[in-house]
Amino acid sequence: MVALLNRPWIWSFVGAAVVFIGALAITGGQGAGGMVTAAFSLALFMVVVGTGQMFVITLGPGNVDLSLPANIGLASAVAMKVMDGNDVLVPLGIAAALGSGLVIGIFNYLLIWALRIPPIIATLSASFIIQSVDISYGRGLQIKPPPGFADFTNWQVPVGGVGVPVMAVVVILFSIGAAIVLQRTVYGRSVLAIGQNIRAAWLAGVRVERVRFLTYALCGLLGGLSGALLAGYFRGASVDIGNEYLLASIAVVVIGGTSVAGGKANIPGLWGAALFLVVLQIMLNSYHISAGVRLVITGLVIIGVIVAAGGPKAAR
C-alpha cells in the first residue's frame, strides 16, 4: 500500500475517482455506467496526444509541441478527404493522416535544429502555417467519415451492462507498448537521459540529435493519428477539432506525474489525468454550469492538482 502511494501517478487516479463520486452524488447514483463509458471514450484521445507530448516534454526544459491542435485539425481533414466517405479507403486515409502528422513533426524538428529556434516558438509558428494550410485545404467544410470508420471509432461492446469502448482497449494496449518503449528500449532510455542532462547524455554515447528528431516525429505522428480517430468519433473533420488538446495534452502530462523539467516520464499517470479531466468536465456539465465558469473551474483544479502533486517532489 505504501509502495502504491509512493507512485506519483496514483494521485491522478485518486483525483479521477473523487470527481467521479462527486458527479454520481448529483445524479443520485444514476448513470454511473454511462459516465464510465463516456469518460473512457473521450480520455483515450487525450492519452494518445498526451503520449506524444510526454515524450517531447521528457526531452528536457523548453521542449514542448504546441503545434498539436493544428496538426490534429489538418490530419482530420486529410483523413476524411482521402477516405471520401468510402469504407474501402479507410486504411489509406489513416496512412495519409499519419503521413501528414509525421511531416509536421519533422518540419518542427527542422525548425528547431536547423534554424535553432526554441521549440516553443518553432512549434507555435508551425501551427499557424499548418492552420492556414488546413483552412485552404478543407475550405472550412465539415467532411463526413465513411460509415464503417465512424462506427468502428464509436464501437462499444457491452460487458456486464457497461459499454466498453473498443478503442479504449486498443489505446490501453498502446499505452503498455509506450511504457515498454520508454523503459526498455535504447530510444526510451536515450530520451530519459537527454532530459536529465543533455551534455552528459551526449558524452555517454547517446545520439542526441537522432533521438530528438525521432521524438518530434513521433509526437507529430501521434497527433496525426488522433486527428483521424477524432474525425471518425465525432463524425466529421473540422479545423478546430483539436483545439482543446493544446491545454489537455500538457495538462495530462503534468498532472500524470511527468516532470516538466524533463528526464522523468509516467505513462499510467496519463490515463489517470485524462480520466480526471474528462470526468471533471462531465461533472461540471451535470451541474448545468455555464461554459465560462466551467473553464475557470477546470483551470483552478488543474493548478490545484499540480500544486498538491508537486509538493512532496519539490522536497526531493
Partner: peptide, 13 residues
C-alpha cells in the same frame, strides 16, 4: 567526465 555534475551523472537515475 571529471566535472561529473555537468558532464557525467544522470541525477534521477
Amino acid at each position: 567526465a571529471g566535472d561529473r555534475q555537468s558532464d557525467g551523472v544522470f541525477p534521477l537515475w
